[in-house]
Computed example of a mutant assay.
Amino acid sequence: MALVTSTEMFKKAYEGGYAIGAFNVNNMEIVQGITEAAKEVNAPLILQVSAGARKYANHTYLMKLVEAAIIETNLPICLHLDHGDTFELCKSCIDGGFTSVMIDGSHHSFEENIELTKKVVEYAHPRGVVVEAELGRLAGIEDAVNVSDADAAYTNPAEVEEFVTKTGVDSLAIAIGTSHGAFKFKPGQKPQLRFDILEEVEKRLPKFPIVLHGASSVIPEFVEMINSNGGKMPDAIGIPEDMLRKAASMAVCKINIDSDLRLAMTGSIRKYFAENPSHFDPRQYLKPAREAIKGLVKNKIVNVLGCDGKA
């Protein structure tokens, strides 16, 4: 099995009323935890790499880790660039073997976003690579993404047809109330997703795959594990999983998950250090961290995404 694009994954997901998990990867243990979980429940996968992860782990190392995962699992895996903000970054990933890239021109004007996205599409498609774009702006902080509440904007459904037609993009990330990072809502604020916007987009773009960014649920179990073992993450709140499941049953074919992976890993390591203060072998504390990621991903695949058994 070689790397695949998300085209067939999204077609089946749309028709089947489920979504594919797009999990951010940074190192070996994260790749292993995600892919071992997917193998056990026979789920298709998107592994995605941010610009920050690429700087941290090196493009070649990440490519080889994903290649190893394919050999070990024999699963259909799509390798995706998350939040590419320039043509040059997208081109580098396309030339370097990625099968999918996101060009995030949401910080530009509508016209400039179209121009930039179209340029990436025209380079990617002849090389067999698919392209995701973003319309609307999500608030929050994660890696290089830093958007204030004042600058965030819901996607305008009236713009989606023109955008998709003029760019030729393969999938579209929209803003309906999700947010990047672990602090998505203020204390006492009830999480809400604008399903009315999603429904209107679905009407205007029938059978077109929609993407949700900033969709971690910020699992309370791991937040508490961090806080009770020396961490300081008060008021960390995410997207309820039942809302994500509803979105997956609609036009949403890809749901991005990053913060939950970080919380699972960090919470497990903090707990291990607190319980084993004399240990110093990284394998000792990275093993339970990997298992925590595996358990988290399995839950997401089965109970949130609904893509178990769909590989």
Rank of each mutant, 00 (worst) to 15 (best):
T7W: 09
F10S: 07
F10D: 08
Y14Q: 09
I20H: 12
K39Q: 15
V41H: 11
L47M: 02
Q48K: 05
Y56E: 09
A57K: 01
M63A: 04
L65F: 00
E67W: 05
E72L: 13
I77D: 01
L79Q: 09
H80P: 13
D85H: 12
S92T: 07
C93I: 03
I94Q: 07
D95Q: 10
S100P: 09
D104R: 03
I114Q: 03
I114V: 14
L116R: 00
T117Q: 11
G128W: 05
V129K: 06
L135F: 08
R137M: 11
R137S: 05
E142T: 04
V147E: 04
D149H: 08
D149R: 08
T155S: 12
N156R: 14
E159A: 11
K166N: 15
S171W: 05
H180S: 05
A182R: 09
F183E: 09
K184R: 07
K184S: 00
F185M: 01
Q189A: 15
Q192N: 10
R194M: 00
E199V: 03
E200F: 12
K203M: 08
L205F: 03
H213T: 01
H213N: 06
H213W: 11
V223M: 02
I226V: 10
I226S: 05
K232D: 15
D235H: 12
I237V: 09
D242I: 13
R245P: 01
K246Q: 15
I257L: 14
S259M: 15
D260Q: 03
G267T: 05
S268V: 01
I269T: 09
R270S: 13
R270G: 05
K271G: 14
F273Y: 14
A274V: 03
P277R: 10
D281P: 00
R283Y: 02
V297I: 13
K300R: 14
L305V: 08
G306N: 04
G309Q: 11
